[in-house]
Design a protein around this nucleic acid. Structure first.
Lengths: 245, 245
DNA sequence: CAACTGTATGCTGTAGGCGGTCTACGAGAA
DNA sequence: TTCTCGTAGACCGCCTACAGCATACAGTTG
């Protein structure tokens, strides 16, 4: 059925292909990782994926490189690709970096806030609250990402926004269970944050964002202790080199 | 002659190739960009580079993707690769992000400083000062990178270290002229910074690093106003799509 | 003279194939 | 029984080839 999915996109291959195949493959593989069909530590054989998605190995290779660049898979030259298996320590550090970037973004967003921008943020808050009320966790997580992205954009620093977005995407991997637990609190904090940005209060915006992300972080760590991410079954066909360097 | 360079690496292709060709290509291309042989905005035709380096298009493509991931080239699907042309604004934002990451690194390095780590930093400072005394700008810049990398590593946060290193590498592109101007001052600040880290004085270390990187930033901006980076001559064979999106 | 259209060329994106290395596994020796 | 070695299979990295789109240019028309 995955084959079908991509094949349908390729159903009109001779007419026009505005989007390179590698990006479709990228998203398809990312989806498989996020949904857990491809488990952390698992070896990803190019031929296998190529057959699964109904394309040749070339787009698979390129998509794997893109995934590697964003930290989703590890490339071991001569040994192929493996789904990245984040340790608790690494997740913790990632969340710490996220706090740093998002806090700075919030500060700058408050400094450069515009009525138009604030209105967009408020709209996202409303949608997020609605999603929480409806117990739609997936939507809540998605809108959460949108809101944070909007704030980083509002900061006016594109480099910062891009970096924060990248880090946030990785965080999203293990974000869902946390959202389930503290969805309502999280969105209340979001609302306060937007108020601070609207008031152009840099320090308060930064402080709220710092507490907000730190809160998420500790929640995540508790969660993680309770339910470690399931790893790939041992019989991974190809072993990683002993020195993962 | 470039062909020779890579060909020599491939001179023993049948025995063992511990390092994939794409990484050699990556470094070769990066060198060409840094030295200005490939100018900002220039279109990079795969076949051309393949011929130049004496390899096929495949490793070239993969190297270009790696370069794209680190912000050295822009990939426009269907239109090929272009050497990234940083605007003054973007460079400014990049340097601001660098300040943020490096400041946090310095703070954490002070918090987690070890005698062993401090000793490494001092050794680098000594080498840096020696390079400045000898008017060896290139060495000074290189050792500067090493020092900053060592500090980020000492922070204990690998994610932060990786991000900071990536940002710093990009900064290095336009760093050299600055180093020429304020080499001595820069290394004096480094020494103070290491002292603060050795004393485990988080706040002081952070403050020194902040000032240090801000200083570099303003120096760079002055420099840039005076000598804009030379761009590719207009007759770039292939135009970028109008909406660079 | 300007704008448009048809044609030619170059380049990208993808497929398929080859050589070499790594892993796994079974047979033989200590 | 355990360790070593040889063999077979699988997979990766790279090369070559092809199809389709984008661009540039020349000819044509208003």
């Amino acid at each position: 059925m995955l084959r079908t999915e991509l094949a349908s996109q390729g159903a009109a291959p001779k007419i026009a292909r505005p989007v390179p195949l590698r990006e479709s493959v990228f998203e398809a593989l990312l989806e498989l990782i996020l949904t857990g069909h491809l488990k952390p530590g698992q070896h990803l054989a190019e031929s296998e994926l190529a057959g699964l998605l109904g394309v040749s190995r070339q787009p698979i290779r390129e998509a794997l490189q893109l995934l590697s660049g964003e930290g989703w898979v590890d490339l071991h030259p001569g040994h192929g690709a493996f789904v990245h298996a984040p340790t608790v320590e690494e997740a913790d550090q990632l969340l710490a970096v996220r706090t740093l970037l998002e806090t700075e973004s919030a500060k700058l967003a408050a400094r450069h806030s515009t009525p138009d921008g604030v209105q967009r943020l408020r709209a996202l808050c409303a949608r997020g609250l609605a999603a929480v009320e409806a117990d739609d966790v997936d939507a809540s997580v998605a809108i959460n990402s949108e809101l944070h992205a909007a704030i980083t954009e509002l900061s006016g620093n594109k480099v910062l926004a891009e970096l924060a977005s990248q880090v946030s995407r990785r965080v999203r991997w293990y974000h869902t269970p946390v959202a389930r637990k503290r969805g309502r609190d999280s969105w209340r904090e979001h609302t306060e944050l937007v108020d601070a940005i609207a008031a152009a209060d840099e320090d308060r915006a930064a402080e709220i964002m710092r507490k907000h992300t730190e809160h998420t972080r500790s929640s995540y760590l508790e969660q993680r202790e309770a339910e470690p991410i399931e790893a790939a079954p041992e019989p991974t066909r190809r072993r990683r080199p002993r020195s993962p360097k």
